[in-house]
């Protein structure tokens, strides 16, 4: 029976190795588990941009699409509410990247209109299939399209995670939108303090 014990110990060590940062997030600490912030996408003005647009800021990134009936507006509202509890200086240290995985319908103009509604810290991005494949693979998330109905509407499946990056672009945090506003605010503040 020594071997199973040993295996369990090994797994425990491996699992423990995943979280090494001193901060206690309410969400899941994923320091070192995923890649640092990096992307090449199209912004709300139709320009090609990279992660340098958020240089020196903490970042919350998540994937969605503007025709999303529930999750995306809920999450953006949650983030906006949490940001509202922060001070102006703290908010200035923070950017929200909303990456649309539905470039067919989400034009830069539409994205701009959509994200403006949730606050100036929210930046809408999208890209070609290759660009989106790159960035979704980096953050271990998938997206896919349902069949079109008669009016040409279709469902888009996408990840529900919000990924937090510290000011140097290192991945730190994975949040879900079932966290209460106060906890999200705590985690955002912790991100900007890192």
């Amino acid at each position: 029976m020594r071997i199973p014990g040993l295996l369990i110990a090994l797994f425990a060590v491996l699992l423990a190795g995943c979280g090494e940062s001193p901060v206690a997030f309410h969400g899941k600490d994923i320091t070192g588990v995923m890649n640092d912030l990096s992307f090449t996408l199209t912004d709300e003005n139709g320009d090609t941009v990279t992660e340098t647009i958020v240089d020196g800021k903490a970042v919350v990134l998540f994937f969605g699409y503007t025709h999303c009936p529930d999750y995306c507006p809920m999450t953006l509202t949650l983030l906006a509410q949490a940001m509202n509890t922060l001070s102006e200086q703290e908010r200035e240290q923070l950017r929200v990247l909303f990456i649309s995985v539905d470039p067919e319908r989400d034009t830069p103009a539409l994205l701009k209109e959509y994200t403006e509604y949730f606050g100036p810290e929210v930046i809408g991005l999208t890209g070609s299939k290759d660009q989106l494949d790159d960035v979704t693979k980096r953050y271990r998330t998938a997206y896919g399209y349902g069949d079109k109905d008669e009016e040409g509407n279709y469902e888009v499946s996408h990840g529900l995670a919000m990924y937090g990056f510290d000011k140097s672009g290192r991945v730190r945090l994975l949040m879900r939108n079932d966290q209460p506003v106060e906890q999200v605010a705590d985690d955002l503040k912790a991100l900007t303090d890192l």
């Binding site: 994937f63 271990r140 998938a142 997206y143 896919g144 349902g146 499946s157 996408h158 990840g159 879900r176």
Partner: peptide, 10 residues
């Protein structure tokens, strides 16, 4: 699978 997104909407 919900958090990371499914390959298609199932």
């Amino acid at each position: 699978y919900a958090i990371c997104g499914r390959a298609w909407p199932l």
